[in-house]
């Protein structure tokens, strides 16, 4: 049985300028120990999907309009606050892009590290501190004993991200949601952190949802990747298939715009136009106005995800009709 099954998640923001359909019918599932990458550009709904599962969106303006997210028998979208608290920070953890704003600057990191343990487990302060020390060592912080007493500002960016990972993993969660955890870091530090996430995943056997805009990061880390555009999933496949035989025109266009895949001196492929305004209703396929293959049918019919190969689904009408 899948660890997490999300069905038709719809998260809308009610703003003065109308209803923004940030996530609009997102469905996917995740097995135990699996790593799923969610890729998309700003505003594609990837972060909103993660936040919706964790129940971290401010309501209002956000509202979960529909859908279910079953995690070990509990619907994360409709459970009581009490049920949510029992899962969050215990069996599901999240790490964020900016470790400076997600750690409390007023508390020593020892206090922040043991907090999830004190809340979720019957454990003495002394034992919790011992656990925190062990965790800090396993995420590769040198001189951990001394550093437990420090405040977040006394760490570098990479070290803070390690502290945040230690904090998220101290309760040995079954699912980790990582929202662009390496975007604010330098490449050499990014390599360290990705390596650490892989190592911790092996040790704890947890599943990971890795949210990023960087196709490069996904290719080395994830078992399966899903691409989002304008609040919807447009393509899901295992990593190898997605990179070697992408089917949806948006996935293909995204790949072609990465500089490292292009020979030097050639003009980079660009996707014309801009992502759609999600506060306006979208007729048919959201990508159609920017798609070089779009026909009249694309703006008339709502596309749905369908299999193109076992485990490979995508939402382009023309691909489904065998025309592309």
């Amino acid at each position: 049985m899948a660890l997490l099954t999300v069905t038709d998640l719809r998260t809308h923001f009610h703003t003065r300028n109308g209803i923004v359909r940030a996530a609009d019918g997102v469905s996917f599932s995740l097995e135990r120990g699996e790593t799923l990458g969610i890729v998309g550009e700003s505003g594609s709904g990837k972060t909103v999907t993660g936040y919706s599962l964790m129940g971290l969106l401010p309501t209002p303006p956000a509202r979960i309009e529909g859908g279910t997210a079953l995690f070990a028998g509990t619907d994360l979208l409709h459970c009581t606050p009490r049920e949510a608290r029992a899962l969050r920070g215990k069996r599901i953890s999240m790490i964020f892009q900016d470790p400076m704003t997600s750690l409390n600057p007023y508390l020593r990191i020892s206090e922040q590290l043991i907090e999830p343990l004190l809340i979720h487990e019957e454990i003495s302060r002394r034992d919790a501190l011992a656990d925190a020390l062990a965790m800090l060592e396993s995420v590769g912080i040198p001189d951990a004993q001394k550093r437990l007493r420090l405040y977040p500002h006394e760490f570098s960016g990479g070290m803070r991200q390690r502290v945040m990972i230690a904090m998220a993993l101290i309760t040995k969660p079954e699912l980790l949601i990582a929202d662009e955890p390496t975007t604010a870091l330098d490449v050499t530090v990014q390599a360290q952190i990705l390596d650490l996430i892989k190592k911790m995943q092996r040790e704890l056997g947890m599943a990971v949802i890795f949210i990023t805009h960087d196709l490069g990061v996904v290719s080395g880390l994830c078992d399966r990747v899903q691409v989002m555009y304008a609040g919807r999933i447009v393509e899901t496949a295992d990593t190898r298939a997605l990179f070697h035989s992408p089917r949806h025109p948006y996935t293909r266009a995204l790949q072609r715009s990465i500089p490292s895949l292009q020979p030097k001196g050639t003009e980079l492929y660009t996707i014309p136009g801009l992502p759609p305004d999600l506060s306006k209703p979208i007729a048919g396929c959201a990508f159609a106005p920017r798609c070089e293959h779009a026909t009249a049918r694309c703006t008339a019919t709502d596309p749905a995800l369908a299999d193109v190969a076992p485990g490979h689904t995508q939402a382009c009408l023309r691909v489904q009709a065998g025309e592309l």
Partner: peptide, 18 residues
Amino acid sequence: AIPAPDPETERTRQRIIL
């Protein structure tokens, strides 16, 4: 350290982690 957008390269290459 640059992650390559190609799973084959990622799997086979030796990464120098500083």
